[in-house]
Amino acid sequence: MEKCPKHVVHYMHAFLDGEISSEEEKILTKHLESCEDCKALMEELEQTETLFENVATVQAPSGFTNNVMARLPQPIKQKGPKKWLRQHPMMAAAALFLILMSASFFSSFENEQQFSFTKQPNIIVEGETVIVPAGEVVKGDLVVKNGDLRIEGEVDGDVTVIRGSKYMASTAVITGSSEEIDEVFDWLWYKIKSVAKEVIPSSKDDKSNNE
């Protein structure tokens, strides 16, 4: 008996898979005509195939669907925020960022209860009151937090008093702008303005440079 080429078995399976090319089929048919062993093998494979393909289908027992429905967990109400979060992850991240940021703004407003002020060489501090003495000129901006400011002299810059009062003597001179901040929203606005000033060079400076 001559040894049958290995690809013949491969062609048999390709034939049964329905994935044989017409050329391969010709080679297979020709070989099977001349080889009894391979013909028998092919027949056995085909019989096996038919047997297993045609076995009666098994049906699920009655009540199967009801049993499944009974086993399901309660419907998860995901119409609300959870579903929205899942569908808009970017928006959720942005919202979370804003919440955290504003929280830090407000908490810094609430927590900064300590008296503080801009260090300038020629000012006097009495308790929680910063005094610009008469006849003195403070060069630069002056910020006082959680304390009062009394100006008798001159401030060559902006004056800001946060949670405190500002008293101006008749001799007082402020060359820049002057504001008092008490409320949360003023504070927020002040923060935003100071950030903006850092980022964008102020138009006032530009003008003064031009002059």
Binding site: T57, V58, Q59, A60, P61, F64, T65, V68, M69, L72, P75
Partner: peptide, 17 residues
């Protein structure tokens, strides 16, 4: 949830088999 019932009915025999 009720819409799932139709899915189960449709696939039950195949999956059980």
């Amino acid at each position: 949830q009720d819409a799932f019932e139709e899915i189960v009915i449709h696939f039950q025999h195949r999956l059980y088999q």
